[in-house]
């Protein structure tokens, strides 16, 4: 009889766990000129039982974690920090209707300048910065849509999207990483739908100074001038 009750309780618990729904998980990372960045994340939670809700986080060492919006009594703390960060929400009551959990955190130096050892070939030119982001759903609950919006710091533009994974499925419409303008700043948005446990997505964007070198203008004017001078016989009237 006791084992029967235990089995029933386990079944009920797993049914409740299965019922957890995460229709969307959206992170907006706004980079500042000094190199730091503040992320604001909104997770839309559908049905969810009371107690612990663990969510994966695509940043390895977030700081200054703050819960901005959640049902009263909800607590948030950072989970394991060995390889992947997780967020641990303690929900005081079960959620029956969709609720937004909003939180923010600080990301130190999201932009990297690739350093090269003396004598080694450089991978990026001086002034280029690389932004990398990876996200893995380490939890059982599938995520409807994962979206990361990265707003570039002022004065930098995207040179190229260097990585956008996974490749688009046939039924998906692309691109995986879309460049656009958000709140007046150039931004790259990574979107990945139906993220099941173990699914991973990543992007790498190379940023360069907005101002282009005037070398092109100089070279162009000189070449055009030289051509017009040395090839003027093309249109010169032939001596009769």
């Amino acid at each position: 009889m006791r084992s029967l009750r235990l089995g029933a309780a386990l079944l009920a618990a797993s049914a409740l766990a299965l019922a957890t729904e995460l229709p969307s998980y959206q992170v907006r990372l706004t980079a500042a000129r000094d190199g730091s960045a503040r992320a604001t994340a909104t997770v839309l939670v559908g049905h969810c039982p009371a107690g612990l809700l663990v969510l994966p986080l695509g940043f390895s060492a977030p700081e200054d974690l703050k819960l901005e919006e959640a049902p009263p009594g909800t607590r948030l703390e950072l989970g394991a920090r060995d390889t992947v960060s997780t967020l641990r929400f303690q929900l005081p009551t079960a959620l029956d209707a969709p609720v937004a959990l909003r939180f923010s955190f600080l990301v130190k130096q999201p932009l990297q300048a690739l350093k090269t050892a003396p004598g080694e070939k450089g991978a990026l030119p001086a002034g280029s910065r690389l932004f990398r982001h990876g996200f893995v759903n380490t939890q059982e609950t599938p995520i409807g849509v994962y979206r990361l919006e990265f707003l570039f710091p002022e004065g930098l533009i995207a040179q190229a999207v260097r990585e956008q994974l996974p490749k688009l499925e046939k039924q998906e419409t692309g691109p995986r990483v879309l460049l656009s303008v958000l709140d007046g700043q150039q931004a790259a948005t990574l979107t990945y739908a139906n993220v099941h446990q173990g699914d991973a997505t990543s992007m790498a964007v190379e940023l360069v100074p907005r101002q282009r070198s005037l070398g092109w203008l100089l070279a162009g004017v000189i070449l055009a001038g030289l051509y017009l001078f040395y090839f003027r016989d093309l249109v010169a009237k032939k001596a009769s």
């Binding site: 533009i157 040179q159 150039q186 360069v208």
Partner: peptide, 10 residues
């Protein structure tokens, strides 16, 4: 030298 477009990379 056109101003960088919103959705276009350099």
């Amino acid at each position: 030298y056109l101003p960088a477009g919103a959705g276009a990379s350099a």
